[in-house]
Computed example of a mutant assay.
Amino acid sequence: MLDIVIEARNAAISPAMQVKRILPFRLRRMVGPFIFMDHAGPVTQAPDQISSLDVLPHPHIGLSTVSYLFGGQVTHRDSLGVEQVIKPGEVNWMTAGRGIAHSERFEDPATLAGGQLEMIQTWVALPEKDEESAPAFDNYKPGALPVYTDKGVWMRLIAGNAYGLRNDVKTHSPLFYLHAEIEANTKFALPEEHAERGIYIVHGSIEINGQTYKAGQMLVFTKGSDPHLLAKEHSTLMLLGGEPLGERYIWWNFVSSRKERIEQAKEDWKQGRIILPPTDNHEFIPLPEDKSRPAGGPPKPEPLS
């Protein structure tokens, strides 16, 4: 059964990079361990200065960022000294743990030609036992990501397990995450083994029980349901979900099971205790104003559950 339909909202992650923000949503904060989802692009018109697309160095705690491209390329740099160009079909999986800073820069003008640049970024909350783990980064090439095919169906497993597929992408809790291409008039099903499941429609449209849903919508389904899904046209989808982790708090780029940990992260960033990427340390995003702070009272990180 369809539980909720989430409409993507417009947001900006840099002066020239507009995104569709799917998660978190006020009526559905998480799907399994996934707590954040942005869809950037396709960028159809290059800005006067390509650097205006860049996301400057900024911090994270308590989560893993997962970057996946449909087109173009992005250069990742982080506090560990990693410098990695991610290309379509690859996975960048960065685990922030107790704290990391990274940047995402769009340094090749050729990748903006013809609306090529398009990407999805999700954040996966860490279990409590892993929230203070050491930061880590891995890049996985397409050959490490198995593919499932059926008549009219192509799916690449980004992480976790689904449809009998598994891979070696390091995760911290049970989940699934797939890129799917479904041909017009093809029926397909969601994986059954996960408690929470969602579909984000990147392009195209799908039908459920006679109702059509379009690009820019996320569909979240109740546990145990077996919805009959039909692609109305060639459709690009992201399928994701897994086991819920319990209540989480989020403020800016920080996620934690504890409010006080977010307060510590704010101070750590202000005081420079989360170090900048050594090869990208000349500028950064400052801590934003805490608009949730009432006069004379403590800040109120937003809970996610």
Score class of each variant (00 low, 15 high):
1 M>N: 14
3 D>K: 15
8 A>D: 09
9 R>W: 02
10 N>G: 14
12 A>N: 15
13 I>K: 03
17 M>Q: 15
18 Q>G: 15
18 Q>R: 08
18 Q>N: 13
20 K>V: 14
20 K>M: 14
23 L>V: 05
26 R>L: 15
28 R>H: 10
29 R>V: 13
29 R>S: 14
34 F>T: 01
41 G>M: 10
43 V>K: 11
46 A>S: 07
47 P>C: 05
50 I>F: 02
50 I>G: 09
52 S>E: 15
52 S>T: 14
55 V>G: 07
56 L>D: 06
58 H>T: 07
60 H>Y: 03
67 S>F: 01
68 Y>G: 02
70 F>A: 05
71 G>V: 02
71 G>T: 02
72 G>T: 08
73 Q>R: 06
73 Q>S: 12
81 G>F: 04
82 V>C: 10
82 V>K: 08
83 E>P: 08
83 E>T: 09
87 K>A: 12
87 K>N: 13
89 G>P: 06
91 V>S: 04
94 M>K: 05
94 M>Q: 08
95 T>F: 03
96 A>H: 06
99 G>N: 10
100 I>E: 02
100 I>A: 02
100 I>M: 03
101 A>Q: 04
101 A>W: 04
102 H>P: 12
103 S>C: 06
108 D>N: 12
110 A>L: 15
115 G>E: 06
115 G>M: 06
115 G>K: 03
116 Q>L: 13
122 T>P: 03
123 W>C: 06
124 V>I: 13
128 E>M: 13
129 K>T: 10
129 K>C: 07
131 E>N: 06
133 S>N: 13
133 S>V: 12
141 K>Y: 11
142 P>R: 07
143 G>K: 07
144 A>G: 13
144 A>T: 12
146 P>C: 09
146 P>W: 07
149 T>N: 03
153 V>P: 07
154 W>F: 09
157 L>N: 11
160 G>F: 00
162 A>G: 11
166 R>V: 04
170 K>H: 10
171 T>N: 05
179 H>E: 10
180 A>I: 09
183 E>Y: 05
187 K>V: 03
188 F>M: 13
190 L>Q: 02
194 H>G: 00
195 A>P: 08
199 I>T: 01
200 Y>A: 08
200 Y>N: 08
207 E>C: 13
209 N>L: 12
211 Q>W: 04
211 Q>G: 03
216 G>C: 04
217 Q>Y: 01
219 L>K: 10
221 F>G: 00
238 M>C: 05
240 L>Q: 00
244 P>Q: 04
246 G>E: 07
248 R>D: 03
254 F>S: 12
255 V>E: 11
256 S>L: 02
257 S>L: 09
258 R>W: 03
262 I>T: 09
263 E>T: 04
270 K>G: 08
273 R>E: 07
276 L>R: 05
278 P>C: 14
281 N>T: 11
282 H>I: 13
286 P>S: 15
288 P>S: 10
291 K>M: 14
291 K>I: 14
292 S>C: 12
296 G>I: 02
300 K>H: 11
302 E>L: 15
304 L>E: 06
